[in-house]
């Protein structure tokens, strides 16, 4: 995974987390994880799991920890 693409994924994950942060830290982490599972291709999710956690915001970091390592997308919630 090139630096450019990794940086892009990190930015996207942090952006999602920031936009959901107003819902509260726990809810935001869960919603960020669900969003990534629902909309991201498996190779993007896999690459995100590999990034240095220090690059991620606290909510994004918590969200990545919730991502199913098997790679399956969560069922839709709405």
């Amino acid at each position: 995974m090139s630096g450019g693409t990794t940086a892009n994924l990190v930015r996207m994950a942090n952006q999602i987390a920031a936009n959901l942060a107003a819902h509260g830290a726990d809810a935001a982490a869960a919603e960020t994880a669900e969003h990534i599972a629902r909309y991201w291709d498996p190779r993007m999710r896999a690459a995100l799991r590999e990034v240095d956690p220090a690059q991620l915001s606290a909510i994004a970091r918590a969200a990545v920890a919730r991502l199913d390592p098997a790679g399956a997308a969560s069922p839709p919630s709405d």
Binding site: S2, G4, T5, R38, D41, A72, A73
Partner: peptide, 19 residues
Amino acid sequence: DPEPGLRIPNMLDAAVEGT
């Protein structure tokens, strides 16, 4: 395939990546 696929910008990223 039960997994979501790539969006246009992600396709372009993945192409540069070689996948």
